[in-house]
Nucleic acid binder design. Structure first.
Length: 420
RNA sequence: GGAGAUGUGGCUGAGUGGUUGAAGGCAGCGGUUUCGAAAACCGCCGUGCGGGAAACCGUACCAGAGGUUCAAAUCCUCUCAUCUCCGCCA
């Protein structure tokens, strides 16, 4: 959410921002609604003031006739006031609905574009492996080694269902432990966060109301989160934090659930796109300063890259184009890992910052050096998402005989060097 | 799931319809005193929204949502949370 005062004063910026994100948004409707909101509010408050004055006078009145007169007058005004209040509440509801639709303004450095095809590569890392044999794809490799069971996965869990087995399970736990240790060593607070959540943190983080079709919903009106960011950001909802405690850095582990409503035909084979997976997410809250935000954005991205470098998986970093940004995101980098069987890079990490878009909705504040309450800034970035990460891992590490070499950094946790 | 109790500001704790944004205490901030500190004393000390250049004015907020009333922290209804007991359970 943006500040309504900011929207009023920077109409052109907001319009250009929405355009760059290719999000349809009628600012004139909001601005005119905001005018009526203020006008009606002024009327209501004037009437309330009058009622309050009368109530005080009634309480102090000694003359009973005078008293009755005042009560009658107040009764009359009450009806008019109630009608105005209803009008105000209707306008407010509509106003709030529109306010939730205003997209955050993308950074200057975000490239123009509509889809992820127009994301701009900013760097690559690692050598694309040259196999002296025909490299197999994730499904073949893992099924041959009895690491995954899709047939029973779909039997039990339906479309996109899967079981990880044997060394895939061990590999997964090795990855979690490796990543967790790294982030704890770097001062991040390790968290296990809930995924079954009330709607407020979803609205707060920007996943609702727009993204509802991609969320699973319970019969109690709760939703399942598609990322630990939702629960982690909700953690400090409606709180005032200490400025001295910034930056707050978390590494949040959680199960993630996505309906993949918009991508029915995509990635139907394997474990790239599944309804249920696990993720460690980096989440940072910092002071409301663009410079601070940019600093941490680069830092978080570098940490994700460090994991890929430790794992020695070739990747590239792209800066996402305007059309590929979410409602609240100001700027986003994706890390894409090389997938040999597809001959291209596939997204494994995503690092975004939001300025105070999320914290304003979540009401997460702190006192600045002048004692003024301000909304904090928030950022998040994937540390590791699994099982997707297994795809580039097993494909890049496959051997001619069908075995997989375990990345060096995982051997300690995995207890073996070769998966065969 | 059943029974009961509770929910007031950063904390503690008064307040059962009328000038209560809310006594008192603690914490915090500023000052007097002191070489400095402690103690003591004095003052300040919530947030959102609207208006205003500002001082400030108005309005709303006593878990949340509705209702009764000229007037609600106070009365009524529902919801949520916490605590105690029982049941169930990883």
């Amino acid at each position: 959410m943006l500040d309504i005062k900011f929207i009023c004063e920077n109409k052109d910026l907001v319009v250009l921002g929405a355009k760059k994100k290719h999000i349809d948004f009628d600012i004139e409707e909001l601005l005119s609604l905001d005018n009526s909101r203020r006008a009606i509010l002024a009327e209501v408050e004037t009437m309330r003031a009058s009622q309050n004055t009368t109530a005080t006078a009634v309480a102090q009145a000694t003359d009973s006739e005078e008293r009755e007169k005042m009560i009658t007058a107040s009764r009359l005004l009450k009806d008019i006031l109630q009608k105005k209040e209803e009008e105000l509440s209707l306008v407010m509801k509509k106003w709030q609905g529109l306010m939730l639709q205003v997209p955050n303004i993308p950074d200057m450095s975000v490239p123009e574009g509509v889809t992820d095809a127009e994301n701009a590569e900013i760097r690559t890392w690692g050598e694309i492996p040259k196999f002296d044999f025909e490299p197999k794809d994730q499904v073949t490799i893992m099924e041959n080694l009895d690491m995954v069971d899709f047939a029973r996965g779909t039997k039990v869990a339906g479309f996109r269902g899967y079981f990880l087995k044997n060394d895939a399970t061990l590999l997964n736990f090795a990855l979690w432990q490796f990543v967790l240790n790294k982030f704890v060593a770097k001062g991040f607070t390790p968290m296990m966060v809930p995924s079954l959540l009330k709607k407020e943190p979803f609205i707060g983080t920007g996943f609702l109301p727009q993204g509802e079709e991609d969320l699973y919903k319970t019969q109690d009106g709760d939703y399942l989160a598609g990322t630990g960011e939702v629960g982690m950001m909700g953690y400090y909802m409606d709180e005032v934090l200490k400025r001295e405690d910034f930056p707050k850095k978390f590494i949040a582990f959680s199960p993630c659930f996505r309906r993949e409503a918009g991508s029915h035909g995509k990635d139907t084979k394997g474990i790239v796109r599944v309804h249920e997976f696990f993720k460690m997410e980096q989440v940072v809250l910092c002071e409301a300063s663009h410079e601070e935000t940019v600093k941490y954005h680069e830092e978080l991205t570098a940490l994700s890259e460090e994991i890929m470098q430790d794992l020695k998986i070739p990747y590239r970093v792209v800066v996402n184009c305007g059309g590929d940004l979410g409602l609240g995101q100001v700027k986003k980098y994706d890390i894409e890992a090389w997938v040999p069987s597809e001959g291209k890079y596939r997204e494994t990490h995503s690092a975004s910052y939001f300025h105070d878009f999320q914290t304003r909705r979540l009401n997460i504040r702190y006192k600045d050096t002048e004692g003024k309450l301000r909304f904090a800034h928030s950022l998040n970035d994937t540390a590791l998402a699994s099982p997707r990460i297994l795809v580039p891992l097993v494909e890049n590490y496959q051997n001619a005989d069908g075995t997989i070499t375990v990345p060096e950094v995982l051997r300690l946790y995995m207890g073996k060097e070769i998966i065969k």
